[in-house]
Design a protein around this nucleic acid. Structure first.
Lengths: 399, 399
DNA sequence: CGTATTTTGTTTAGCGTCGGCACAAAGTCA
DNA sequence: TGACTTTGTGCCGACGCTAAACAAAATACG
């Protein structure tokens, strides 16, 4: 008599996100009886997804029977996570709980042809799978471009020198089949594809600085342009065709530089690494990434008045853009990544003040603005997206 | 053995929105067996919420056994709907299916003191309830101001000359108790309060031009300023504290007039009725509302070049604002109300072209932009919000 | 005109999931 | 050592559904 089938998914998600360290809190979080929570935990353990400690652990200074700790199975199944960025690609195996199980050395090839690069990164992931010998339940790919749904084409892979409309999802699926990345049924695992900032936001919500937020807004800039993402009640909001949160074309400087969108003074061109370097009077070199150059500048020469002034200028513009987003989305937390994160950490108060001042209700209850905390959050996010079917229905996903 | 308790709410919602005209389609829509759908329908009928026709109706040119029509119970329970606007207030009783059962004559008093007006409108509604003798299950109030959640205070009741922060929800709840608007338990019915544009969007989604949209964006202007609303998967998205979709401060004219928000050229001041009248070179008179004046001008003098030019100017700015929202929210449908609706109908192609041109992915797949179709949509929306608990769990709401 | 077909609705039996409850286990507190 | 607190399990029944057979009411067709 197997019990707790309906609660299986929610329960796994609670353990996955670390919100259910014991069966007792699982009981409370699920709102079921102890009997059900126990059965659910037993079934998840039988499925090889979670581990229930044999020995109970007594928390200091508490009475009652000590509870057995619940955790993600250390040798459980994994998903293949892949990321393509301006300078190369990266592949990894990620278990439940966002644990990186194995990583392929990050390759630094300029990703010219989409099909080659996707084959290469999936090949690297497949190699990790073979050498680790672990079961694979899914695969996710993060790409620095808007991905149209449901076709899965990359609409603006600007700094990848890919053709617009590249069929990323199709290529990824084919590569997974070609490289023999198969699931429990023997068929190739399903592949999910997404924008890197979107996936990073998902990862931060599950395992990083976004934990517990109901309406999480994420804004980041890595190379050129600015990306945004919104996680609502734990699910990525990607709009009706995957193109939501293209925040780069909010006007933040009416007298600013022209943007390819036809307007001028867009967030995209006014707050990215190039804008910062230019504002600081530096000419970017070709050797390292723009993000790296601006990060270095910010960290080593913040005392220089011109650098500081440039940072403040960018912060003010970013604040204006964030305020606009706050007026529209009313998030309960904002996370910043890439250069925006560095700018926040350089002067947290200035950015918060601008946002509070320029958003309509900022004074009454201002929004917490925090830095992303997860390393490789886009990669972890790709894994999260791949885990989603398992979290939604563990039994179906393992069948 | 009562069957179909869990599916009760979804089933009622399907009948409520007219998407389940017979038990057969109810079966299909719910994804359950005919047995369950039949039991659910029987139970809803027993609760007095829906009606199952005694005689079957045979659709022309179809074989098989003709089905019995499902409809909302004509003499079922109602909710009290109330609306306060710049020129007065309105009260009505609304049944399931958005049917207005009774209306109090719209009162045209300038609503100076919140407590008096709310007492008056609830009093009018209570009078309707007494004379109709129908059961009341809830009450909703639409207000032309952002309403902060969860406290229910009106943050910017600008054209009501109310104090900012007026405790609208509290006053509404008190008025309901004072006027003896009681539910099945004998206790005063719960009151829900919301922004008028938000509620209008909800109503349009359930019964109007928004039917079937998964991501519905609504933008409207009635008097001064511009309001927005977003309905996601059938639920109003009001942000983490009820303040989302304050779309009025998107920049649509960098060289425009200053706005009270500190910026200039905001949607709020560049596309409202006053902006249109001013652009057409007219000085607004005090006798009728700004909306009425601009509507009259648009309808009767559209041939006048200055009027037409003003309309096109406003349409271009509105298009810019909508394009910004499309980039951020990626809705699958846009609905316009108030003057914006009139402007759309005066020249649909121009607005659609501007939005397609200025939104990032507008060319590939442009968003349908339609006019609101429901009369008194804010009022109906207040009723919808009041019906929500019943739709979520009919048994609990009737207990 | 009668029979087959199609579609709708109902009845009955049964199963899976969960809650309720009693009981057991493993610690702290006095 | 015994009372208390908290965690975990076994058993039973209730509830909410599915499956499948049956019944009903129309059209289609020979």
């Amino acid at each position: 008599m197997e019990r707790g089938r309906g609660a299986l998914g929610p329960a796994l998600e609670l353990v996955h996100t670390g919100r259910a360290p014991t069966r007792a809190v699982l009981t409370a979080e699920l709102g079921v009886t102890r009997a059900t929570a126990g059965a659910v935990a037993a079934e998840l353990e039988a499925l090889g997804l979670i581990r229930v400690d044999a020995r109970p652990t007594a928390p200091a200074g508490s009475q009652g029977r000590p509870s057995h700790r619940l955790s993600v199975a250390p040798d459980g199944p994994v998903v293949l996570a892949a990321q393509i960025h301006a300078d190369g690609y990266r592949a990894a195996l990620v278990g439940l709980g966002g644990r990186v199980v194995a990583t392929a050395p990050g390759c630094m090839t300029v990703p010219a042809d989409p099909s080659h690069i996707i084959d290469a990164v999936v090949g690297a992931g497949a190699g990790l799978l073979r050498s680790s010998g672990r079961r694979c339940l899914g695969a996710g790919l993060a790409v620095p471009s808007a991905i149209a749904e449901p076709d899965g084409t990359a609409l603006n892979p600007l700094h990848l020198s890919w053709p617009a409309g590249a069929p990323v999802h199709e290529l990824f699926t084919e590569a997974l089949a070609k490289c023999g990345v198969t699931g429990p049924t023997g068929a190739p695992v399903p592949g999910v594809t997404g924008n890197d900032v979107n996936l990073a936001a998902l990862a931060e919500h599950r395992h990083g600085a976004g934990r517990g937020a109901r309406h999480l807004l994420c804004v980041a800039t890595g190379h050129r342009g600015v990306g945004g993402a919104l996680v609502l009640d734990g699910r990525l909001h990607s709009g009706s065709s995957g193109l939501a949160l293209e925040v780069g074309h909010l006007t933040v400087n009416p007298a600013g530089v022209p943007c390819h969108c036809g307007s001028r003074g867009c967030l995209d061109v006014e707050t990215d690494p190039l804008a910062f370097l230019t504002a600081a009077g530096r000419t970017p070199g070709p050797e390292v990434s723009l993000l790296q150059q601006s990060r270095d500048l910010l960290r080593t020469e913040y005392a220089d008045p011109s650098v500081r002034a440039a940072a403040e200028l960018i912060v003010d513009r970013l604040g204006l853009g964030l305020a606009g987003l706050v007026n529209i989305l009313n998030p309960d937390r904002i996370l910043l990544g890439g250069l925006h994160r560095e700018l926040l950490e350089a002067d947290p108060e200035r950015l918060r003040a601008v946002v509070a001042d320029r958003s309509l209700w900022g004074r009454s209850g201002s929004v917490p603005i925090l830095a992303c905390t997860l390393d490789f959050n886009s990669l972890i996010g790709a894994a999260e997206a791949a885990w989603q079917p398992v979290l939604d229905d563990p039994l179906a996903a393992l069948a």
